[in-house]
Design a protein around this nucleic acid. Structure first.
Lengths: 237, 237
DNA sequence: AAGTGGTCTAGACCACTTT
DNA sequence: AAGTGGTCTAGACCACTTG
């Protein structure tokens, strides 16, 4: 629900921090002040502040107050779940997507293993090259269970598949498991990427689950090593 | 506070899930049932469950209930903040640490930039090689601000510096910023690691902050590419 | 209709920091 | 002593899924 009070207040404060309206290392209003300011209960303000803590915007200190953290905002989008298009937009880089392959196929052993489908179930296969500043840097191999994504077009793939999934199909993404490894480059990599002297690629495997816990997508994102960068903000759990 | 009710209940349920006492894809007791079971209020149970959601143990569904997720527990420790020693112990691999260098030095430009210290401030420099199954795989370069870590010995470095920091010095770690990139191997890498044919290393840069937001450690962890693996569980924020 | 999780409230007590 | 965040409660209403 986006009409919840705590989410609205969260977005207000988050925007103020990103704008610089609230400056790094300064003290936020206390919980009791925010209660008056926004006319809500303290537990609601605390929900808001805990979200800001979780996402690296503030740090709370008992007896002292909440303080705005100084995190370079451009570092953030790379972390967590985010699509190539969203990322490129936030970074402000020129980028282009080439759809190399788009087909409906019957699941083979590889997909039975990685997409939890039955043999011969129908699966969308999408292979795309991502260009950044005129160089082919990333090869994205996406596989979608057809049960969840009935149709797919070249136009959708050139834009953002995620946007289509969330806004048009109204599927809700719950969580994802990501794995980063380094592998020797394949013939396919060499065919679709400008690898130059590099003979290895950074492989980011992504298993994406809907909020009803069904696995609906497996993605392999293969990056030229020199252009790869992964940034993460972590709190001790 | 470890004596909080919600944390105790969290650890109880977490352990049951890790044990297999609560099986993947089964339904957890409802919030109202847990309220009776543990004799606490519903908001306290909800705090517990939200922690389990955050850390990938369960998924909640409105109107349906909470469900145990099937996450291979060995995948987890690699994510977030965890030390080499904790990691090796959880994975059950034989490992060994060689301390190559341990010295107190005056901060140079590099440290002024990465550790937010003044020029000539004293900084502990620790260079360690990590052996896994008899091969030198990881080179760890750690830098600690002496203000926070007054003394350091070879014995501590061979064990776990983190354990020393948290249990002996009683410093509380708040959060960390991690960056993963691929770089050409340096002479230092070649000297201390069994790189074989590889001429690149995976570099994990870690900026570790205390809970009062002061930066107290900068670490570079340099891995042989074939043995590197980073796993992450992410929820859409 | 009954049960589930999601949000919100008002009030209480505690531990810690500052004045 | 006053102010801060941390925990906990009992109760309310809502939206959603199931019988």
């Amino acid at each position: 629900m986006m009409n919840s009070k705590y989410l609205k207040i969260y977005n207000l404060i988050k925007t103020k921090i990103e704008n610089g309206e609230l400056k790094p290392n300064t003290k936020l209003s206390s919980e009791n002040e925010l209660v008056k300011e926004y006319n809500v209960s303290r537990e609601t303000i605390r929900k808001t502040l805990n979200l800001l803590v979780q996402n690296g915007y503030i740090q709370k200190m008992r007896g002292k107050g909440s303080f705005v953290l100084d995190i370079n905002k451009f570092d953030f989008p790379v972390s967590g779940l985010i699509s190539f298009k969203e990322l490129a937009e936030k970074m402000g880089t020129r980028s282009e997507t080439i759809v190399n392959e788009l087909e409906l196929m019957e699941a083979d052993d590889f997909l039975v293993k990685h997409l939890e489908v039955q043999e011969d179930d129908l699966v969308w296969k999408v292979i795309r090259t991502r260009k950044i500043g005129n160089e082919k840097i990333i090869l994205d191999k996406d596989f979608f269970n057809k049960i969840f994504v009935p149709s797919l077009t070249k136009e959708i793939c050139e834009d953002s598949i995620y946007e289509y999934i969330e806004n048009t199909l109204n599927l809700e993404i719950g969580f994802a498991k990501k794995e980063i490894t380094i592998e020797p480059s394949s013939e396919e990599d060499e065919e679709h990427l400008d690898l130059g002297k590099y003979d290895m690629v950074v492989v980011v495997k992504n298993y994406v689950y809907l909020s009803d816990t069904s696995l609906f997508q497996y993605t392999e994102s293969r990056h030229r090593p020199d252009k790869f960068r992964f940034v993460d903000f972590a709190r001790r759990r």
